[in-house]
Amino acid sequence: MTYKLISNGKTLKGETTTEAVDAATAEKVFKQYANDNGVDGEWTYDDATKTFTVTE
């Protein structure tokens, strides 16, 4: 399945996607992506749209 990340960081804003077997796997990928880009904030997940959002 395709999962989307919306980043509302102070230094990184935008969207990216990943293919993953489940939401937990996608979350690990996205949290590593955010960490690699210096984004640390509040996370939410919408199962209906398969979208994670991180806001700093």
Rank of each mutant, 00 (worst) to 15 (best):
V54N: 01
G41W: 05
V39H: 04
T2N: 06
E42L: 12
T11G: 11
K31Y: 05
T2A: 05
D36L: 12
G14C: 15
M1G: 11
T55N: 09
A26D: 00
A48R: 11
D22N: 09
Y45Q: 00
A34E: 01
K50F: 09
A20Q: 07
V39Y: 07
K4I: 12
N37C: 11
E19W: 15
K10I: 13
W43Y: 02
Y3E: 03
N8D: 09
I6F: 07
D47N: 07
A20L: 02
E15D: 06
G14P: 10
D40A: 12
N35R: 15
I6R: 06
E15L: 14
T16Q: 09
V39L: 14
E42F: 13
T25C: 08
Q32T: 08
G38D: 07
A23E: 06
E27Q: 10
F52D: 00
T2R: 10
T16G: 04
T11M: 12
A48F: 10
V29K: 09
K50L: 09
D36T: 08
T18M: 11
I6A: 04
S7G: 06
L12V: 09
T49A: 06
Y33D: 01
G38Q: 06
T55V: 09
T17I: 10
Q32N: 07
V39C: 07
L5C: 05
K13V: 11
D36H: 08
E19L: 14
T11F: 13
A26Y: 01
D47P: 14
A24Y: 10
A24K: 11
T51I: 05
Q32R: 11
N8C: 15
L5A: 02
V29D: 04
D47Y: 07
S7F: 15
A23M: 11
E27Y: 15
T44A: 10
V21K: 13
L12P: 05
G14H: 14
T53G: 02
I6T: 05
T17K: 07
Y45W: 03
V29A: 08
L12E: 06
K10S: 10
V29C: 09
M1H: 14
T18N: 03
T55A: 06
Y33E: 02
V39P: 02
F30S: 00
T55C: 09
T44Y: 09
T16F: 15
D40K: 13
T55K: 07
A26I: 02
K28S: 09
M1W: 13
K31F: 05
L12M: 11
T51K: 03
I6H: 05
G41I: 03
T55L: 08
A20H: 02
K10F: 12
K10L: 13
G9H: 11
S7T: 15
N37D: 03
Y3P: 02
Q32Y: 04
D46P: 00
Y33N: 02
D22P: 01
L12C: 14
K31N: 03
T49L: 07
E27M: 14
I6Q: 06
N35D: 10
T25Q: 12
V39T: 05
I6W: 05
K31M: 08
A20K: 02
T16P: 04
Y45F: 06
V29P: 00
A24G: 07
G41M: 03
A34S: 05
T53H: 07
V21L: 12
E19G: 05
K13Y: 11
M1E: 12
T2W: 12
E27D: 04
A23G: 04
V21C: 13
K50I: 02
D36S: 10
N8K: 12
S7E: 04
D36R: 10
D22S: 07
M1Y: 15
D46V: 04
Y33T: 04
F30T: 00
T17F: 14
E15W: 14
K4F: 13
E27L: 15
K50Y: 08
A26P: 00
N37K: 10
K4R: 13
E56C: 08
E15R: 07
E42M: 12
T49V: 05
K31T: 04
D46W: 03
K28H: 07
T25A: 13
D40R: 13
A34K: 01
Y45L: 02
W43P: 00
Q32F: 05
G41D: 01
V21D: 10
S7R: 06
V54H: 03
L5D: 02
M1F: 15
G41A: 03
D40S: 13
A20I: 02
A34N: 02
V39M: 12
E27C: 15
D22V: 02
D47G: 08
A48Q: 11
Y3D: 02
T25G: 08
T2Y: 08
A20V: 04
G14V: 15
G14R: 13
V29E: 06
T51G: 01
T51H: 01
T44P: 00
T17E: 08
E56H: 08
D40Q: 14
A48V: 12
V54D: 00
A23R: 13
T53D: 01
A26S: 01
K28P: 01
S7L: 15
G9E: 04
A23D: 04
V21T: 12
L12W: 15
D40H: 14
T49I: 06
T11S: 11
L12Q: 07
N35T: 13
Y33Q: 03
A26N: 01
L5T: 02
E56R: 05
I6D: 03
L5N: 01
G14T: 14
A24S: 09
Y33K: 03
T25F: 07
L5H: 01
V21Q: 11
G14F: 15
E19I: 15
D47K: 08
E42H: 12
T16R: 12
Y33H: 04
V54E: 01
V39E: 03
N8W: 14
T18I: 15
Q32A: 12
A34F: 05
D36Y: 07
G41S: 02
D47M: 09
E15A: 08
T44M: 08
D36W: 07
T55Q: 07
G9M: 12
G38M: 06
A23F: 12
K31E: 03
W43S: 00
T11H: 12
D40V: 14
K13C: 15
T16H: 14
Y3S: 02
T49W: 03
K50V: 03
E19K: 13
K28R: 13
E56S: 09
M1P: 08
T49M: 06
T11D: 08
G38P: 01
T17N: 05
K4S: 06
G9W: 07
E56N: 07
K13W: 11
V29F: 15
T55H: 09
K10Q: 10
L12I: 11
A34Y: 06
A34Q: 02
K31S: 03
T16M: 15
F52E: 00
V21E: 11
V54Q: 01
A34P: 00
G41Y: 04
E15F: 13
D36Q: 11
W43C: 01
V54L: 13
T18C: 15
G14W: 15
T25I: 07
T18V: 14
K13G: 07
K50E: 02
Y3N: 02
W43T: 01
E27H: 11
E56L: 10
E27V: 05
F52R: 00
N8L: 14
T16L: 14
L5W: 04
T2V: 13
T16K: 11
F30W: 01
T25M: 11
I6S: 04
E15Q: 10
A34R: 02
T2S: 07
Y45E: 01
T51V: 06
T2F: 08
T16Y: 15
N8T: 11
V39I: 15
E56M: 10
T44C: 10
A23L: 07
T44I: 08
T18A: 07
E27R: 09
I6M: 07
N8H: 12
V54M: 06
Y3F: 13
T16N: 06
T2M: 12
F30E: 00
T25K: 05
E27I: 07
K4Q: 05
D22Y: 03
D46L: 04
L5I: 03
T2P: 05
V21Y: 12
E56A: 09
E56P: 10
K10C: 14
T2Q: 09
Y3K: 02
L5V: 03
